[in-house]
Design a protein around this nucleic acid. Structure first.
Length: 434
RNA sequence: GUGACCGUAGCUCAGUAGGCAGAGCACCAGAUUGUGGCUCUGGAUGUCGCGGGUUCGAGCCCCGUCGGUCACCCCA
């Protein structure tokens, strides 16, 4: 019979297997340490919210809300949605818990947050993926924008990623952006007939997106289009200039990309993205975010400035693998205990217990397998030391301890020795101390 | 939602012109009554993704469907 289940992980979801888990732990450790260094505190919000949190927060017209949310009614008839992005939920929590009474800004991060979007899976894009995410609320200072970009940058430096580039732009605020969008529409409307099909849709639905069309034929039109940077109102222009001064002073390698726009409605002023330099392909961005000074109001709260970013963990780990960064592997046992017979097995269990109390990683053989099979298991486990316990050892009170790392052609008495039962723990602890 | 390619053992993949479903790796056992790594011998394991069609006969041809991969849209 097949030992495979008829069930498979659902489309666009993946298991994090034991061989992968240490890499995840590594990324999380770096994120946690770096965030704490920058004064961020951990928060985790529920992985579902009332649908309105996202519908209002992210924006009714966005792709996420229009076609990607996992929305369902619970048994009480409430419409709930699996978290499609982090920011809206964190802002909801900030408002709900009255965090405006805390010293501002309130700086928060999340770790391995599962997010759900109903999309066609492809490289770097899954229906369930995970992000770490940083948000800073209650402060509009451009220095905070720069600090946050520096944080994201530093995380990837400490992860060991190479050739990462930062792109930034300002998309203005509610005062100057509508005028810019109108200018863009005015510019594009006469060219309409000559646009690619996608751009015809963008023109009416989301004109800012016209700027990142990839069609060759539309590139000259983009190049000649009015730029947001030339249309910013005075406060937005000053804010953007201040952000750049800070980034310059910090020595961060950023470039201004006047075509960088972000998909969610709530962004204002600063937007930024982190991507590998060579990532000409799509789906290469490993982090992105921006300021969202109007979001709290959209969720029914008092006006509260905020800025944040999310970064995709699957993409981060994949990038590190592609760049050949050495990632941690599963821990191997230091000691493997083989036993023959019921009495010996009890002695093995006790020895394992005592060695673990001494902080060693220990495995013992289970089942009734031959010593040969147990030694093979010991070898495959990666343990340095094997302890062998049989009736002879119980009688003599001396356990056999074998060095599995000894060369195959080493003399037998160098590979293996008898150690008095009472001394085995101390002997192995001494061998395994660094 | 659109398009291209691909679904054969746990994994990586062969499978000729439509004619008994295979290899390597991994796993288990033995070669040594209680000793791993190298070697040798043997063993178990499949709804050939699923459903239908053509055919005396389909892993192979046809249609549909589901899934995977990649790309578009969009995003991390």
């Amino acid at each position: 019979m097949a030992n495979t289940s008829s069930y498979k992980a659902v489309q666009g979801t993946r298991d994090i297997l034991p061989e992968d888990a240490p890499a995840w732990d590594f990324v999380e450790r770096i994120v946690r340490e770096t965030c704490e260094r920058y004064g961020y505190q951990r928060i985790e919000t529920p992985i579902f919210e009332e649908t309105g949190v996202y519908a209002r927060g992210v924006g009714e017209g966005t792709d996420i809300v229009e076609k990607e949310m996992y929305t369902f009614k619970d048994r009480g008839g409430t419409s709930l949605t699996l978290e499609p992005e982090v920011t809206a939920g964190v802002v909801r929590a900030y408002l709900e818990h009255g965090m405006h009474t805390l010293p501002q800004p309130v700086k928060l991060y999340t770790l391995r947050t599962p997010l759900f979007r109903y999309e066609r899976p492809q490289k770097g894009r899954y229906r369930e993926h995970h992000q770490f995410d940083c948000e800073a609320l209650g402060e509009a200072d451009p220095a905070l924008d720069a600090e946050m970009i520096a944080l994201l940058w530093e995380i990837y430096q400490r992860l060991g990623a190479r050739d990462i580039v930062i792109q930034i732009n300002s998309i203005g605020d509610r005062n100057c952006r509508p005028a810019y969008v109108q200018r863009l529409v005015d510019y594009y409307t006469p060219l309409k007939e000559d646009l690619c099909d996608d751009c015809k849709v963008r023109l009416v639905k989301n004109p800012l997106r016209l700027l990142d069309c990839k069609e060759e034929r539309d590139q000259p039109k983009i190049a000649a289009a009015p730029k947001m940077a030339d249309c910013l109102c005075e406060p937005c222009a000053e804010h953007f200039a201040a952000v750049r001064r800070h980034l310059d002073a910090l020595g961060l390698p950023y470039t201004i990309n006047p075509l960088l726009v972000r998909g969610l409605d709530y962004y204002t002023r600063t937007v930024f993205e982190l991507a590998p330099e060579q990532g000409g392909r799509r789906q290469s961005a490993i982090g992105g975010g921006g300021r969202y000074d109007g979001l709290a109001e959209l969720l029914g709260g008092r006006p509260t400035p905020g800025i944040g970013f999310g970064s995709g963990m699957e993409r981060a780990i994949e990038l590190l693998r592609e760049q050949g960064v050495k990632l941690p592997e599963p821990a191997k046992p230091q000691v493997f205990i083989a036993a023959l017979g019921a009495e010996a097995k009890i002695a093995a269990a006790v020895l394992a217990h005592d060695l673990r109390a001494g902080d060693l990683r220990v495995q013992m053989a289970f089942g009734e397998r031959s010593l040969k099979a147990q030694m093979k298991a010991a070898n495959n486990s990666g343990a340095r030391w094997a302890v062998i316990i049989g009736s002879g050892e119980l009688e003599s009170g001396r356990f056999q301890v074998r060095d599995l790392a000894a060369p195959a052609d080493a003399p037998e008495d160098e590979k293996q020795r008898a150690v008095a039962r009472a001394d085995v723990v101390a002997w192995l602890l001494a061998q395994c101390q660094p």
